[in-house]
Design a protein around this nucleic acid. Structure first.
Lengths: 252, 252
DNA sequence: AAGTGGTCTAGACCACTGA
DNA sequence: CAGTGGTCTAGACCACTTG
């Protein structure tokens, strides 16, 4: 190790290059410094970074601390790390966005609106082909089909068409779905071990247009979620959102 | 510490409760075990977990190892950790999905199709109000407006309408945009420090319908991305995808 | 003021994987 | 098979935040 960090404070070395960042020598400081080198193209895609041990010497810290910083950068997709291969700046950069999908009631309330919920129907039916495919099931067993409308200040917000496996979740048959949303009951009472999510756009069908009080063919944003516990299907839901619905995410 | 882990192997204690998981005593093993307790409702939302030190004793490992496991669960939104307050199972569970948005060329090629690109127009114009708002700018400066079509096997895949700040990125004026997509050049050459992402559905405008070779009013999925380096705007792009486009994500 | 999580260290050993 | 990242430890001290 060439440089000791004893007695060296952040301010001593902060020459103004970093405006936002934490103490140098902290794992966040190291992460930000490496990221800065990528941002200002001191390091370009494909470049090999020094070994953790060398970086530890450079920053005057333990290798563990460098590890912590580099793991974050790897999680973000900024660098690729391989044993023996070393650490390189990612050749194929991509944008990694993290989306939090809350319970609808909470989403509405956080927007400052009054949440409402109306059950449209709940009946046992054979799974349509599309949903069976979602679950990856070869057959088309009976499940509970629940249709319900979520409203914000009285206007339609999300219309959900849901299938719940009462083989996996028999308790669902005892839930008063006229009062409590299946969405909320399931999320609070039946955590999943796997979840597939798909988002896309559709033209409103006649039914959807009526439910959402809009015109047929209106473009609507759809969120599909299918969940399992282990190998067993729990639920698959197609949530049609109101016209103009946007899903947003901010990075950094 | 009551239990030592020396000489204790995973198999010794693996009673079959965990099918998928790594060695117990590893941070992943601890993470999975705690998650299992949440899944099978041994722990329910709001429950307080033992202190890290106690868990370390229970699992016969160092506190650091428990810390690593718990940090992951906190990142996933499964638990909430506060100093002095301890660790609790999250009261308001949400679904956290991670979306990777690759460079369009790579997305097309990975789908096994032939990628094509055609520049439609590139001209300096004053920013429309909508885009100025995206950037959070009070004024409406001139930027480079680039319109281009990405194709897969010759059919329209994504139509992008992009604004690039040539104040922040003067080099863009020298890029041969007829050959190289602004998308790809920017991602490879101008990393950003902040990125806002929005996804939503629109009815195709007349222009969009023509570009995408579909009918007006066809529902299309739109991805909007706006990026900055520090406080300076880089680019804002509205990418209209072909009919039927889906964005997907899998959790766990 | 005290309790709990967050960070850091120095060192050891392990597990990949590329030359 | 050797080089590099990944994990783990035991202990110390720090930084929040709540009772």
């Amino acid at each position: 190790m060439l440089v000791s960090n004893s007695g060296q404070t952040a301010t001593e070395r902060d020459n103004g290059a970093n405006l936002t960042t934490a103490k140098l020598n902290s794992w966040q400081g190291i992460r930000d410094e490496i990221q800065r080198r990528i941002l200002d193209r001191s390091l370009v895609p494909g470049d090999k970074l020094p070994r953790d041990e060398e970086l530890a010497a450079e920053f005057g810290c333990a290798r563990t601390t460098v590890q912590r910083a580099m793991r974050e950068l790897a999680d973000r997709g900024a660098v690729v790390r391989r044993r023996k291969g070393g650490t390189r700046v990612n050749e194929d950069p991509f944008t990694r966005a993290s989306l939090d999908i809350p319970i609808t009631r909470i989403e509405v309330e956080q927007a400052g609106a009054v949440y409402g919920y109306r059950l449209e129907s709940a009946e046992k039916k054979a799974l349509p082909k599309r949903v069976a495919e979602q679950f990856g099931l070869p057959s088309r067993p009976k499940m509970l089909n629940v249709r319900a409308l979520h409203t914000a200040d009285g206007t339609p917000y999300i219309f959900e068409d849901r299938w719940v496996s009462f083989d996996t979740v028999p308790e669902i048959l005892n839930v008063k779905l006229a009062v409590e949303s299946a969405n909320e009951w399931l999320i609070r009472n039946k955590p999943y071990s796997r979840c597939d999510i798909g988002v896309y756009a559709v033209n409103a069908s006649a039914t959807e247009a009526r439910m959402m009080r809009t015109s047929p063919d209106q473009a609507l944003f759809v969120i599909e979620r299918t969940t399992w516990i282990g190998e067993d299907p729990i639920t698959s839901v197609r949530a049609v959102t109101r016209p103009g619905y946007r899903m947003i995410s901010r990075i950094r």
